[in-house]
Amino acid sequence: MANIAGRKKRIIVTTAVLAAIGGGAAFAYWSATGTGAGQATAAAASVPFTFVSQAATGGPLSPGGPQQTVAFTVTNPGTGVQNLADVAVTVDEAWSVGTTLPCTAADFTVGPVVVTKGSINAGASVNGTVKVTMINSATNQDNCKGVTVPLVFSAS
């Protein structure tokens, strides 16, 4: 029994000594400051908006007659937010039909364009509409009968 009591004393004393040594241990370190450089690369250019137009609705175009409405969608195919400041729609200036009495872009008016302007998130779209009218000119417009008027959409 005395052996057990002496053994317990040694365990308690050893534990106390180890705790005192470990508890009083000091840790040293160096302090330092520094600088560094890094970089990130922005896209080299914005990604052009894309347009998809729908079939025109409304009565058939005729000199001074009804308007047609063309619905369209503008999409931001880029990877970041892009600003849609304006949308312009025109009749393709290079287009004409007929030779003697040509039907040209000058036979039509386009507008107003209605679209929500502002920031468009990556992959998002906004919808818009535009009106197309055939003007009543002082010349024969027979070559404009039955034509499909080519529209050009542009965004800024």
Score class of each variant (00 low, 15 high):
M1Q: 06
M1E: 00
A2F: 11
A2W: 08
I4T: 12
I4M: 01
I4A: 07
A5M: 14
K8W: 11
K8A: 15
I11H: 06
I12N: 07
T14W: 13
T15G: 15
T15S: 15
T15K: 02
A19D: 00
A20R: 06
I21H: 07
I21Q: 02
G22L: 15
G23C: 11
G24Y: 03
A26E: 00
A26G: 03
A26I: 09
A28C: 12
Y29S: 13
W30R: 03
W30S: 12
S31Q: 14
S31E: 10
A32M: 03
G36N: 09
A40T: 14
A40H: 04
A40N: 04
T41R: 09
T41I: 15
A42S: 14
A43P: 04
A44C: 09
A44R: 05
A45D: 11
A45K: 08
S46K: 13
V47I: 10
F49L: 08
T50Q: 07
V52F: 07
G58T: 06
G59Y: 05
P60N: 11
S62R: 03
S62H: 00
S62M: 05
P63K: 03
P66C: 06
Q68T: 11
Q68K: 12
Q68L: 12
Q68R: 11
F72T: 02
T73W: 08
T73R: 08
T73G: 09
T75I: 05
T75F: 06
P77W: 02
P77E: 00
P77C: 09
G78S: 14
G80C: 05
G80W: 00
Q82W: 13
N83P: 01
L84C: 04
A85F: 08
D86K: 13
D86S: 15
V89Y: 02
S96M: 10
V97K: 08
G98I: 09
T99F: 02
T99W: 02
L101Y: 10
C103K: 02
D107W: 07
F108I: 06
F108T: 02
T109D: 10
V110E: 12
V110M: 13
V110H: 09
G111F: 02
P112K: 08
V115M: 03
V115A: 04
V115F: 02
G118Y: 11
I120P: 10
N121Y: 00
N121G: 15
A122D: 13
A122V: 14
A122L: 13
S125A: 12
S125E: 04
N127P: 04
N127E: 08
N127Y: 05
G128C: 10
T129I: 13
V130E: 00
V130R: 01
V130W: 00
V132C: 11
M134E: 06
I135A: 10
N136G: 12
S137T: 10
T139H: 07
N140R: 03
N143M: 13
K145E: 04
V147M: 02
T148S: 14
V149H: 02
V149C: 07
P150L: 01
V152G: 04
F153Q: 01
F153Y: 09
S154A: 13
